[in-house]
Design a protein around this nucleic acid. Sequence first.
DNA 1: CGTGATTTTTTCCCAATTCTTACGAATTCT
DNA 2: AGAATTCGTAAGAATTGGGAAAAAATCACG
Lengths: 234, 234
Amino acid sequence: MKAPHIAILDDEPEIRRMLSDALEEAGFRTTAYARAGEFEVGLKRSAPDVCLVDLGLPDRDGLALVHRLALESGAAIIIISGRAQVQDRVTGLELGADDYIIKPFDPAEVVARIRARLRKGRTEAAPSLQRARFADWVAEFDRYVLIAPDGTETPFSHAEGEVLRLFLDSPKRLISRAQMQEALGGGAGESFDRAMDVRISRLRTKLGEDPKNPRLIKTIYGAGYIFLGDVSWN
Amino acid sequence: MKAPHIAILDDEPEIRRMLSDALEEAGFRTTAYARAGEFEVGLKRSAPDVCLVDLGLPDRDGLALVHRLALESGAAIIIISGRAQVQDRVTGLELGADDYIIKPFDPAEVVARIRARLRKGRTEAAPSLQRARFADWVAEFDRYVLIAPDGTETPFSHAEGEVLRLFLDSPKRLISRAQMQEALGGGAGESFDRAMDVRISRLRTKLGEDPKNPRLIKTIYGAGYIFLGDVSWN
DNA sequence: CGTGATTTTTTCCCAATTCTTACGAATTCT
DNA sequence: AGAATTCGTAAGAATTGGGAAAAAATCACG
């Protein structure tokens, strides 16, 4: 996939520089403009995926430009502005901007917000993968399948998946029984519930755990459970 | 078009109140939850268009919740948080949030940001296309015909088409039984409705699914259905 | 309006999953 | 060590979904 293209419009050279450095560092292509006129010419040449627009332009009313962009271009529009009043942000967003960042800003946040915009546009085309890897295992949550280190596929049920997901979301951290109850059953269940143990038991079986010496799902007697193993989502 | 539905998750009653008031004033439907558990139960019942999530929850790790939401729900996710560090914002956004609002906030800005999210989501999905391709199949909704990989044409009924469209609109995503009821029958119907199963059953037959091992429409026992297969509309 | 064809819902029964019950094993308290 | 608590798991019970066929509703057409 081609690197997304970000257009930058800002009249201050240092800010242009800072932004393009940070964005290219993050793997984007960038084009920077100092004036609205050049910017619009550039737009005709190639359509960027995201436009970063500074409202404090000397040569044009920034908000009007944003409004036009929002209507005509399919790109996500992020306003950068020194004006911090709520009213400014509200009008900027109402006019069609997708986000509004206040100066002074941290480039890392700009990158994160750009990624969020791109992600949203893209999920329509390429559905997000729900897949986690841990200790040579792979869990595919959209197919409800667990792939063992030797490649064997084992289906897991929704109930098992809920438990597994809870573990994979907070690896190497103690999860109390009460937390788990709430996360799963949502339950007012004050009753002695073995249901949870059963779910965990079945999950352990599918993960091929040795009951005497579990390596992934460890019981902390009187406290809860802890999932060992490095998890990476992708 | 029905008013967009906003789900609110915040443990502080005044904030819940302030948000729902402002949002309903702005013409949205809202549902507010105080705890992550209730929130997740509510999600299964009906899918909101936007989720407002406070990270400072007493009963759950908010970021893990956001991550999960981002993966499995189609909704836009907006984090509300008292943590104002850039690093907090970056990780929140990287984990899948679409926006990050810092407390204290102005309700008007929340409304504006929600509108921005909805606007974006809608323009992508708006042009109602009549033809979808998935896994070597083609569905032509204007002719009510399904074209098999071998070229055979099979007509499908309106009811079957509704189900199919629902699946093709959110592929690889769990669709709960309640959601489906709502999307189709518009149903106040609390009655045990086997009608839906029958529709799905017929659709599966027309798609030539093997009942023992369905590859496209998978049943998640006790949770709903999920459509596997890459979909492209045109 | 009526008749027949198509579509949709209901009914009934079987299969899969999940919860509950029961009991034994492991751990902690006294 | 002995008792009490907490956890693991097998087996039966209760839910929930799949699918065939009958009943009901809707549509097509004269």
